[in-house]
């Protein structure tokens, strides 16, 4: 009996101390982690796909509830008007989800640009989707909607040796298109504030 109490007490105390320590550290690093995510993951992609914007799209953002998830929408101002929105979408890649930041011109519903944010693709092959802008640049100016690589009967030339990654990027853009169409009225409502 005494043994059992000792076990329970030791494990409880150990867990409690560990939990308390981690909670403290979480509070301390939380803001910095959020900042890091913005600068490293979304920032570089945002800057390229909304290049020429008059505002800072990283700080001009709002959240929209989309079913159970929350989408953060970044706003880009051109000629004094908030005419572009950017948000992140995901496609199934070779090594896991490929995150794609895509910016859409709200005037004519075309793609301004796309950039890979997070991925776990093979260096030198699938990772080219992020490192080499040729592929994502080929998506520029296309109307939003379903995108497919040529292997699947579409019009997008896949990165050679990285069809699955290219397919993931196209899937993410397709997904982003449907999200945009679904949330369009809410987005336009929010854009009036900028």
């Amino acid at each position: 009996m005494k043994d059992m109490i000792k076990m329970v007490v030791v494990l409880t105390v150990l867990s409690a101390v560990s939990g308390w320590m981690l909670a403290g550290l979480n509070g301390y690093t939380k803001d910095r982690i959020k900042l890091q995510e913005l600068t490293f993951v979304k920032g570089p992609a945002l800057k390229t796909i909304l290049s020429g914007a008059e505002n800072d799209p990283i700080s001009d953002n709002f959240d929209i509830e989309d079913g159970e998830t929350i989408k953060t929408i970044f706003v880009g101002k051109f000629d004094g008007k908030p005419s572009a929105v950017a948000f992140e979408s995901y496609g199934k890649g070779f090594g896991g989800d490929v995150g794609v930041m895509i910016s859409i011109d709200t005037n004519n519903d075309t793609i301004i640009g796309a950039g890979v944010t997070t991925h776990a693709e093979t260096p030198g092959m699938g990772a080219k989707a992020k490192d080499d802008p040729t592929f994502v640049n080929s998506l520029k100016g296309l109307p939003i909607g379903e995108l497919k690589v040529t292997q699947d009967g579409g019009k997008i030339n896949a990165i050679s040796g990285a069809t699955i990654t290219s397919r993931a990027v196209c899937g993410a853009v397709t997904d982003a298109s449907s999200t945009y169409n679904r949330l369009k009225s809410q987005i336009n409502e929010k854009l009036k504030n900028y």
Partner: peptide, 25 residues
Amino acid sequence: IAGYIIIIATFVTVIEMMMKAYTYE
């Protein structure tokens, strides 16, 4: 063993948070 796992898991979470905060890439 349960105790060791708690200790190890705590430090792993610490290093995970630190890496997220300081060496994000």
